[in-house]
């Protein structure tokens, strides 16, 4: 039996909330399965999510959270991958420009910014799930989160480029090797996550930079203009992504 859209959303939000709480994966599977099974039954008799939560999904999610086992170790397995992804994102740009170098601002700034970004995304997904935000609200919150994370990385990249002496400067050949390794990480990541967005974002982010590297603007202008173009492209992509989701939803609504 298929769940209604509202029930399906609720179960997804419970899953996301418990995941961001660092709960044991097996327990999450069991309890969300139980909720699905429950919702599949009374719905045929005209009851719904309300009958489970008595009107407060957020409180209900908390009551589940309280009784479940923590399993932070499960999160740790994502850490190396997320770390690789972040390094690839922050390194790709300079490698494309033939300017990969290591300096102290990067060595400190990138890990700090990475941790701050993870906290921003964690808070985003947790609130999205717990407060059951609508499409519009989720979109604006994601927009805000993505923008602030990109700005943080941009600030690190820019300041490390202009204000400090590098500890290591890559040769032209090494720059190409680094860019190829980064591209490989993006491709593997997209396959692992099964998300086309994971490969589209790096293309939009670094495509303009590659294009600008063939022009004769000065370096500052290359970076600033290509960054602005990237931002615009990424926002357009999010809008398109949202439109596609909406279309899918309305098709789904027509069928059921």
């Amino acid at each position: 039996m298929k769940l209604s859209k509202r029930s399906d959303e609720f179960v997804k939000n419970v899953r996301m909330y418990l995941f961001t709480s660092g709960k044991n994966e097996q327990e999450i599977v069991e309890v969300t399965g139980e909720l699905e099974d429950h919702l599949a039954e009374p719905e045929s008799r005209g009851k719904s999510v309300e009958s489970i939560t008595a009107g407060s999904p957020a409180e209900y999610m908390e009551s589940l959270e309280k009784e479940m086992t923590n399993d932070y170790a499960a999160w740790l397995k994502y850490v190396p991958f997320i770390g690789l992804f972040i390094v690839a994102y922050s390194v790709m740009g300079s490698a494309i420009n033939g300017a990969f170098e290591v300096n102290i601002i990067q060595l400190i700034g990138v890990p700090v910014v990475a941790i701050v970004s993870l906290i921003i995304y964690w808070a985003l997904f947790r609130n999205m799930a717990k407060k059951e935000w609508t499409g519009k609200k989720s979109f604006f919150a994601s927009f805000f989160a993505v923008t602030s994370v990109m700005l943080l990385f941009f600030v690190v990249a820019l300041s490390s480029m202009f204000f400090i002496e590098p500890l290591y400067v890559a040769s032209p050949k090494m720059n190409i090797v680094i860019a190829i390794i980064c591209a490989l990480i993006f491709v593997l990541g997209a396959i692992w996550l099964k998300q086309w967005i994971a490969i589209v974002i790096p293309i939009l982010l670094f495509g303009p930079q590659i294009a600008f590297s063939f022009t004769s603007f000065n370096d500052e202008w290359k970076i600033i203009v290509s960054w602005i173009i990237s931002m615009v492209l990424i926002y357009v992509m999010f809008a398109v992504h949202l439109l596609i989701l909406k279309k899918k939803e309305s098709k789904f609504a027509q069928r059921s």
């Binding site: 139980e34 009374p42 009958s51 489970i52 939560t53 008595a54 589940l64 009784e67």
Partner: peptide
């Protein structure tokens, strides 16, 4: 019960 879902947290506790 007003909230039928309230059995699930209790069941989780009983399992633990």
């Amino acid at each position: 019960m007003v909230s039928e879902g309230s059995i699930y947290p209790v069941l989780l506790r009983m399992q633990k």
